[in-house]
């Protein structure tokens, strides 16, 4: 049996979601090859070769792959699948964009955002915004799966897989990259951070969000998150959003500030190891899942916490 894992990367660096997806693929079983499709992506391919448990890295170079557009990646992956029994992609926006195209071309039903591999055909995945956990069995000849990174811890150790260059289709493709606006930040990446500090609607403005949340995050070396309410109100950018429709995180420490705890937010963070909630409403649903609850005015508590840490 063999699994093809799609690497998540930014050409010059490999994203942690790749190693987590490899861990899920190892639970599935068989030989594991990682596909790095990019432009000037040799360093990402070399990093993928160090993930423990990888047989080889397939490295496809082409300008069409510089931004991982789904049309180009599909054209690359589908012919490769004749040699594999499964395609595992991280449930990142890239993986979610590409995997269903591959599944449709292979005429198989995809299993989305798995949180557990039970055996080579059975998986667990959350449905209804995390209000239910579904166990599904796939009888498809080839499995196409996306993997929720927060549910799998990257394995320790280092591998030494070979990197093999493979031919890449050059297009033309019917979609073209125009531009991107990526948030520049020295903070850890939200999806894989060990600590996360999140702010909610109670911050009341973008200025106060920045003034109160960011210094605490920096003090803790934490990534910054936000509730959907805070994002909708314009206090924080969308890629900060933690929740079922945003990012799902499971850090060692999650600090929820001024977040009431809507179901959709809880679905995105309830697997965190230690949850701290700071809220002035002692009936807030977030307190039902918090390990440590501090009831009070966040505008007094947060600066005090930041200064005493």
């Amino acid at each position: 049996m063999a699994v093809l894992v799609l690497a998540e990367h930014s050409n010059n660096a490999l994203n942690d979601a790749t190693a987590r997806t490899v861990v899920a693929a190892r639970a599935f079983g068989g030989d594991i090859d990682v596909l790095v499709a990019g432009h000037n992506a040799r360093s990402a391919a070399d990093a993928a070769a160090k993930i423990p448990g990888v047989r080889k890295v397939l490295h496809a170079e082409g300008e069409a792959f510089s931004h991982a557009l789904a049309e180009a990646v599909e054209a690359l992956v589908v012919p490769l699948m004749s040699g594999y029994d499964a395609f595992f992609a991280p449930a990142t926006t890239t993986g979610k964009n590409v995997a269903p195209r591959v599944a449709a071309k292979l005429d198989v039903m995809q299993v989305s955002e798995i949180t557990k591999v039970i055996d080579a055909s059975t998986f667990e995945r959350p449905v209804y915004a995390g209000n239910a956990i579904m166990t599904v069995k796939s009888g498809e000849a080839k499995k196409v799966v996306t993997v929720r990174g927060a549910a799998f811890q990257a394995a320790a150790g280092s591998g030494a897989a070979v990197v093999e260059s493979i031919a890449a289709p050059s297009g033309p493709f019917k979609a073209a990259f125009v531009s991107e606006e990526l948030q520049k930040s020295d903070r850890p990446e939200l999806a894989s951070a060990k600590r996360v500090v999140s702010g909610g609607r109670a911050l009341a403005s973008a200025e106060q969000f920045n003034q109160y949340i960011l210094p605490l995050a920096d003090k803790l070396g934490a990534a910054v998150g936000a509730s959907r309410a805070a994002v909708d109100a314009g206090y924080a950018p969308n890629d900060f959003q933690v929740g079922q429709t945003g990012k799902v995180v499971a850090p060692d420490l999650y600090v929820a500030i001024g977040i009431s705890g809507a179901i959709q937010h809880l679905a995105g963070m309830k697997d965190s190891k230690v949850i701290v909630a700071i809220n002035k409403d002692d009936e807030a649903p977030i307190f039902q899942i918090a390990d440590y609850a501090l009831v009070g005015d966040l505008f007094k508590i947060v600066p005090e916490l930041t200064s005493k840490l």
């Binding site: 198989v108 039903m109 299993v111 059975t122 959350p126 449905v127 995390g130 209000n131 239910a132 956990i133 579904m134 166990t135 599904v136 069995k137 796939s138 009888g139 498809e140 309830k270 949850i275 701290v276 002692d282 307190f287 039902q288 899942i289 918090a290 390990d291 440590y292 609850a293 501090l294 009831v295 508590i301 005090e304 916490l305 005493k308 840490l309």
Partner: peptide, 28 residues
């Protein structure tokens, strides 16, 4: 005809509420 068979649907693991702390010092 479905290609995936639903084996079961379960409630997610419940997380218990923890404790209230009095102030920032107690939290730290």
């Amino acid at each position: 005809t479905p290609r995936l068979q639903v084996v079961k649907v379960a409630e997610p693991k419940k997380r218990e509420a923890g404790e209230k702390v009095a102030d920032v010092d107690a939290l730290i």
